[in-house]
Every structure is written in C-alpha cells, then in structure tokens.
Design a protein around this nucleic acid. Sequence first.
DNA 1: GTATCTGCAAAAGTTTTGCAATCCA
DNA 2: TGGATTGCAAAACTTTTGCAGATAC
Lengths: 133, 133
Amino acid sequence: MRKTEQRACILEALREGPPHSAADEVHRRVRHKLPGISLATVYRNLDLLSRQGLIRRLGGHGGRRRYDAVREAHGHFWCLACGEVEDIPFTFPQPEIDMTHPWMKGRVVYVASTDLQGLCPSCAEKAAAEQKD
Amino acid sequence: MRKTEQRACILEALREGPPHSAADEVHRRVRHKLPGISLATVYRNLDLLSRQGLIRRLGGHGGRRRYDAVREAHGHFWCLACGEVEDIPFTFPQPEIDMTHPWMKGRVVYVASTDLQGLCPSCAEKAAAEQKD
DNA sequence: GTATCTGCAAAAGTTTTGCAATCCA
DNA sequence: TGGATTGCAAAACTTTTGCAGATAC
C-alpha cells in the first residue's frame, strides 16, 4: 500500500472527526484540506483501510456504511428507527471468544464489538406516542 | 400490526431459509408461495418486523442489509473481503451489560450480538497470496 | 367504515467501476 | 519505468416512496 496524501488525510479525518462517519461525511471533511479529492477515492480508501484492519467498518443499519477509527473492542448501540450509532459510554467485560477453536483456524480477526440494537430514547418516545394514537 | 399473508410468509421464509438473508433473497424465496408479492412489500415488512423486535437486522457490510430470525444473543463473523456473515458456531459467555446504567434509560433493546470482523479462511488465503506476488 | 397494507413504478440514495492521467517507489 | 492510485463520469445496486386499489379488523 503506497503512501498518498489522500489516504493520510482520510485516515486523519476519520480519527479526528466525529466517530462512526459515513463516506460522504468523511469526504466533506477531507475537502477542507484537499479540495479536489473525489468521493470515489474516499470510498476506495475506506474500503482498503478496513480490509487491512486499520479502521473498522460498521454495518450501515441506516443504509449508509459507517467507519470507525477506534479499533479497540467496544460496544455500539444502533437505533433501528433513526439509524444512528452511539458508542456505549461505559465499560463492561468483553466476551472471551476462544480464538484457538478449530473453527477459527485460517481466519484473520481485526476487531470485535458488542452491538445492541433497539430504539434510542427519542425514537422510543415517538414509538410510544404513536401507539397511543 | 395487522396479520397479512405476505407478512406471515416473509417471516416464515426468514426462519426456514438460510440465516442472514438479504431482502432480495427473501423475496425470491417468498415468491414460491406468493408469486405476486412485490419487493417493496418485502422491504417494508422486514423493516417493520425489525422495528418491532421480531427479527434482527444485521449491518450490511457487503452493501446489502441482512436479516436474522434468530433473536437470541449470538456471535457473527463478518468477512470484510467477500461480505459474508457466519454465525460463530460455538458458545461463549455473552457480555453482561448493565441495563440499569443511567445511559440506558429510555432505550429499548431488542437484541445483542458479538461481532468479529476480519477475513474468512478463503479470503485470508487470497490476501496472503497477493502479498507474495 | 377506516386505517393499514399491497403492488407498481418511479425516485432517491449509496457504492462500485472503467478509463486515462498522475504519482510513488 | 511499472504498478498503484486518482478524478471523473457513468453504471450498478439497494432501499424508499407516492399513489390508487385491496384488505383486515
């Protein structure tokens, strides 16, 4: 993997910007430094970096794929209604998965996370209000 | 939520078909029973069912959103190269998250999962081969 | 009876790709 | 120099939405 200014700036933008950014958000931020950078380059690099395990790729429950520069295992809360992702802000014991299990043979594991999915407070409130109607 | 034949068949297809199906796959399978069902209906129902917590919505690392009829907490392995998702086939202690923590107040949690991401054996092999070239 | 649900078709949104030019090693 | 990388534009793919008619309760 070569060193290019675009790639460096993308990584920097992901690290310094808000967590769980989508490609278009990263693109918008990188443009401040590199006005000419194309969205395709951002996509290509986010994909490349995540395949190398340098960043974390999040699902995209909201339709858009999101990326996370934090590689340490941590928890996420996905809201199914608004699509937002939040880090779970308190610590809890991470599950211990037996990496020596035969099924793991040949696999490369970059990151682990514990994900909860449900409704965030404001969406839960809206949902409850609709029930009443 | 009303009871419709379409909805019932979609749920059935998700339960009986291969796990982690995407909307178009569910649609293809449901068509066997309900040839006239539209893809839009499948999308609408998968979304609705997941918001009610009846099924689980997976991220869509491969671009497509996937759904899972298994609601019990379990682990997934996502391959970043080919986009496939597999259930981790052995059990391990699930993390204990303090649901009484103040941050959890107001949230509705439907399901929890532990996700690993990396490369599956065949993609890991390919990646290693490319390194050598 | 009425709000929900469906099918259709169009629109919207997101990601990938072909290609020629450019850049890094 | 040679292969990796980029920008641009088009294409591909996935998901959502408006609407009129059908359906469940």
